[in-house]
């Protein structure tokens, strides 16, 4: 036996590299995904460290000196209402992340469930779900959200209701994507084999199809988070957000209504804008990267 055993050095090189190493190697090829994840990580670090070190009370009106430009004491400056913009950005980032993950997660969940039901069972169920999605799709979702948010009592508008408003009209996209994927999956041979060997419907869905769809679900989730963050931002810019909270869109709305740039308080709207660019940019990059992962055909041909 010992004669056949390989020398230890070769054995090590044959060993499969750890999943972390594989991930890093993949990230080196998929640069967009890597950069997107890096920016997102930096934003998360900013928020977490900020929540631990900055006094979050300063994110609300009348807590610090008014209208101070960025300085050592207030790195992002302060606004007309006496909010420290650094604290406001920390809290706003956290709230944006909360809305994004809650609304994005719920939207994706509803989409996955409806998509599976629609594609797997077919028939009139599929027809109904598809028609509803198609009828709702051309309606400018944001404007309907304006109607919903506008009809709410101002006291009822909170971070959670914002997320719910966004979810109400944001599950059609993932439903159609997952439905299309399940439809192609259903025809594959491994599903037929499972069916012939007597696996139940639920067994096929959870054990055979779902694992194959994970990359698509991940991509749909990131896309939904993007949509949710974007929608909440637009609503807040229109003044329909929870006005007291320092959501990034709210800060811009407040700056805009006080004519901040006209008055030379440029940092007030610019800092939340840059924050929003970083959030949306990183999500867009990650989404494109995941698309490439889920859909090798999109992979670069150069």
């Amino acid at each position: 036996m010992s004669a056949i055993a390989l020398p230890p050095s070769t054995q090590a090189s044959i060993e499969r590299p750890g999943s972390l190493v594989l991930l890093l190697r993949y990230l080196r090829r998929n640069k967009g995904l890597a950069i997107g994840l890096l920016i997102l990580l930096a934003l998360v670090a900013f928020t977490v460290i900020g929540l631990l070190t900055v006094n979050t009370k300063n994110a609300y009106p009348l807590s610090v000196a008014l209208k101070k430009p960025p300085s050592w004491k207030y790195p992002f400056g302060t606004d007309f209402f006496g909010r420290d913009l650094l604290a406001a950005m920390v809290v706003g980032m956290w709230q944006t992340a909360f809305i994004g993950v809650l609304a994005g997660g719920l939207g994706t969940f509803i989409g996955v469930v409806l998509g599976f039901i629609s594609a797997y069972f077919g028939g009139w169920i599929d027809g109904t779900i598809r028609t509803i999605c198609q009828v709702l799709a051309p309606i400018p979702v944001l404007l309907i959200q304006v109607v919903i948010a506008g009809s709410l009592d101002k006291r009822d508008v909170t971070i959670v209701t914002m997320a719910m408003i966004v979810v109400l009209l944001a599950w059609m996209g993932p439903t159609l994507v997952i439905r299309a994927q399940v439809l192609t999956m259903k025809e594959r041979q491994f599903v037929s084999v499972a069916k012939l060997s007597g696996v139940s419907d639920l067994g096929i869905i959870f054990k055979e199809i779902l694992p194959c769809l994970l990359p698509f679900i991940a991509a749909a989730f990131v896309a939904q988070v993007f949509v949710a963050v974007f929608a909440a931002f637009y609503l807040a810019v229109l003044g329909l957000g929870p006005l007291r909270e320092p959501l990034l869109g709210n800060i811009i709305w407040a700056a805009q209504s006080q004519g901040a740039i006209f008055n030379g308080w440029w940092w007030w709207p610019i800092i939340p804008s840059v924050g929003m660019i970083l959030i949306l940019g990183s999500l867009a990059l990650i989404n494109m990267g995941l698309d490439e992962l889920a859909n090798p055909r999109v992979r670069r041909t150069e």
Binding site: F233, V237, I252, I261, W266, I270, M276, I277, L280
Partner: peptide
């Protein structure tokens, strides 16, 4: 392509600031 992450509303604020102000 990098601009895809910048929605028109934010682009507007940036342009007002840099080109206008």
């Amino acid at each position: 392509i990098l601009l895809t992450g910048v929605p028109p509303v934010i682009m507007a604020i940036l342009l007002i600031f840099f080109i206008g102000f």
